[in-house]
């Protein structure tokens, strides 16, 4: 039911692991629902220079986390914010309809990490 690309990212997830001192963290999902995603970013001059993820969830949750990290690496924050769940799903050659919510989680985790970074930046100026 999963595409080869989903299986590839599930078997060999890119950018998986914890990050020391991230500039922004996005945490979404809930273990009760069976999906929980954490995305960590390093930002220099508004560019995402490094990104990592950790995920508790199904094959699609892991593959969408992995794919979103690949898509955002090296992008400016504004470019990264344009990445939607559909972009993530398409990059994986599609997801089963019942798993589309995993791509939404990936988008939300990314947005959460960027928001967190911007909030920290404002706070550090104050």
């Amino acid at each position: 039911m999963y595409s080869e690309k989903v299986m590839d990212h599930f078997r060999n997830p890119r950018n998986m692991g914890e990050m020391e001192n991230p500039d922004g963290v996005g945490k979404v999902g809930n273990p009760v629902c069976g999906d929980m995603m954490e995305l960590y970013i390093k930002v220099e001059n508004d560019v995402i220079t490094d990104v990592k993820f950790m995920t508790f969830g199904c094959g699609a949750a892991i593959a969408t986390s992995s794919m979103v990290t690949e898509l955002v690496k090296g992008k400016t924050l504004d470019e990264a914010l344009k990445i939607s769940n559909a972009t993530v799903a398409e990059a994986l050659d599609g997801l089963p309809p019942v798993k589309m919510h995993c791509s939404v989680l990936a988008e939300d985790a990314l947005k959460g990490a960027i928001e967190d970074y911007r909030k920290r930046k404002v706070e550090s100026k104050v």
Binding site: F10, G34, A60
Partner: peptide, 21 residues
């Protein structure tokens, strides 16, 4: 579900009570 998929890569076929399956 992720356990099932990984075990399947080893040729092992099992079931789960996870929502994701």
């Amino acid at each position: 579900e992720s356990l099932i998929l990984s075990l399947d890569d080893h040729g092992i076929c099992v079931a789960s009570g996870s929502a994701c399956t």
